[in-house]
Every structure is written in C-alpha cells, then in structure tokens.
Amino acid sequence: MKTTTTWTGKMGFLGKNPSRHEVKMDGPATIGGEDNGSRPTELLLQAVAGCTAIDIISILRKMRIEPERFETEVEGTRAEEHPKKFTHIHIHYILDGDIPEKKLARAIKLSKDEYCSVSHTLNADITASYTLNGQKGEMDV
C-alpha cells in the first residue's frame, strides 16, 4: 500500500490514498498553520477507531447481528516530552440494538487481540470499553 502526502503551503498537507480519497491535514496557527485540516495525531486516533469498528461490524454480521447504532469515542494520552507519542489509547464503543453482551465483548476482543492492523502497528497500551443500549459494560480483556 502506498499513499502520497503533498505540502499545500504553510503547515498544510493533502494526503491521497490508493482508494482515491483525500485527507486534509494542517497545523494550528501557533506553529504556522491555518487550521484547515485535521492534525495527524487526530487522524491516527480515528484510524484506530475505524479499523476496529470495521472489524467489529464484520464479526457481528458473521454472528448474524446488526446493530441499530454504533459509535466510537477514542481518547489518547500523550507523553509530555517529544516525540509526545501516545502512551495510552482508550476506545469506548457505544452500541444500541438487540446484541448479546457476550457476543459484543467477543467481537471487541477479537478485533483488539487479532484483527485490527492499525492498533497492532502502535506500541500504545490500547484498552476498550462499551455502552450497549445506554448501559456501560465491563471488558474482560
């Protein structure tokens, strides 16, 4: 897989992907940017969320389960010193629908431990939690 990222001036960049989608990235004004795009670190958290969410939907569908709603919230904690890498990433899954809790926990665990290539690429400690139909659940992972 190969992507290209092209400088568009000041601190702005345009990423182009093999799937022909484009992603605007920029820095804040405090470092010379114009705040016209996402920060790369924000995209990294979204990539983790997207990767694991795709896994979970795929696994649930194989179980013949279709959520009514599925959302993720990802929170990353960064080191104080440069390179200010993420030291901890927490993914919270929010689902509604007729989903057996044990099957949801299994799908999350499979994504976290086996399938999500984005999270397996990172060295951060990635944890997970979920809310199913408004009730917060506990992970045994």
Rank of each mutant, 00 (worst) to 15 (best):
M1C: 01
K2S: 11
T4P: 07
T4D: 09
T5E: 08
T6H: 07
T6G: 01
T8Q: 12
K10H: 10
K10E: 14
M11Y: 11
L14N: 04
L14T: 10
K16Y: 06
N17H: 07
P18C: 00
P18D: 03
P18Q: 01
R20T: 15
R20K: 13
H21F: 13
E22H: 05
V23T: 14
K24S: 15
K24F: 11
M25P: 06
M25A: 07
P28Q: 04
P28M: 04
A29I: 15
T30E: 13
T30I: 14
T30P: 04
I31S: 08
G32M: 11
G33H: 01
E34V: 09
S38P: 05
S38Q: 10
T41G: 01
L43K: 00
L44N: 05
Q46C: 12
A47W: 07
A47M: 03
V48L: 11
A49H: 02
G50R: 10
T52F: 05
T52M: 09
T52H: 03
A53L: 11
D55K: 00
I56W: 02
S58I: 09
I59S: 03
L60T: 01
R64E: 13
R64F: 08
E68I: 11
T72L: 14
G76L: 11
G76Q: 06
T77L: 08
R78T: 04
R78N: 01
E80M: 07
E80W: 04
E81P: 09
E81I: 15
P83E: 05
K85S: 15
K85C: 14
F86A: 01
F86R: 01
H88Q: 15
H88D: 13
I89G: 00
I89T: 01
I91V: 15
H92V: 13
H92F: 10
L95M: 07
L95W: 04
L95Y: 06
D96S: 07
D96T: 05
D96F: 05
P100V: 05
P100N: 00
E101M: 06
E101L: 08
E101H: 02
K102R: 10
K102T: 10
A105R: 15
A105T: 13
I108M: 07
I108H: 00
L110C: 09
L110E: 07
D113K: 00
E114Q: 12
Y115E: 03
Y115D: 02
C116Q: 01
A124N: 05
A124M: 08
I126G: 02
I126V: 15
I126L: 08
A128P: 05
Y130E: 03
Y130T: 04
T131Y: 09
L132R: 00
N133K: 09
N133F: 08
G134C: 03
G134R: 02
K136G: 05
G137H: 06
E138I: 06
E138Q: 05
M139R: 02
M139T: 03
V141P: 08
V141N: 12
V141S: 12
V141H: 13
